[in-house]
Design a protein around this nucleic acid. Structure first.
Lengths: 113, 113
DNA sequence: CCGAATCCTGTTTGATACTG
DNA sequence: CAGTATCAAACAGGATTCGG
């Protein structure tokens, strides 16, 4: 019996939840950037130079809605905004480690061949 | 010093490699299905009922090109095709475990609230 | 049974310029 | 500094039909 086992169905469901959050080209890069410290808008842009301000703004908003990051406004002059991971965002650490491990492995096996 | 550290840049690069492979709505589900055993086209479809034959065919091809799965043709009557994970595909196991763990955590914290 | 071919739609992403 | 606005392009995904 190898099809449609309950365990498989459950794994499919939770993996789908996870993927919906990290889908897209920019969310994982943004989260990775923030694991290296709280950052301002421009600092994230320097970590990920190819991202347009529009996409950065849009994806930050989505991550905030999913409660993975916080947005803190300091109304100094000029205005500054700081983004930081929430506990939920920090809880992605192990997943990010595995993403890094596997990405490294994949690069060794395929990309860099 | 918190921006654009070498470690961050390296992590961004390998994570991007990994994400390119697992991007999209269907690749992770297909791989998960195959971790429960080698399957035929129709069997994968039964695990993932929402997928159309077109998308399944297309994504299987992409996964084969990335050497994550193999496609084996048995010319019995009628013709049957079996898909299986390669060693590289199997090496995603740890990543899938973390995806499952985090998806479960996320569902508990946010989705199912 | 296992797809291929075609056509079509909506979402995602991007380039560029502009604002408080 | 931290974004918005606008417009266009690219792509993912779906519906349907057909073939070996």
């Amino acid at each position: 019996m190898k099809s449609t086992e309950p365990a498989c169905q459950y794994e499919l469901k939770v993996a789908k939840d996870a993927m919906e959050v990290i889908q897209g080209k920019w969310r994982i890069p943004i989260i990775i950037s923030l694991t290296y410290g709280n950052k301002r808008f421009g600092e994230i842009q320097r970590d990920i130079p190819e991202i347009s301000p529009k996409m950065l703004s849009q994806e930050l908003k989505a991550l905030e809605e999913n409660q993975l990051i916080t947005r803190t406004l300091y109304d100094s002059m000029p205005i500054t905004v700081e983004y930081a991971l929430t506990p939920l965002g920090l809880s992605m650490k192990d997943l990010l480690v595995e993403l890094r491990n596997w990405g490294k492995h994949f690069r060794k096996e395929i990309v860099g061949k």
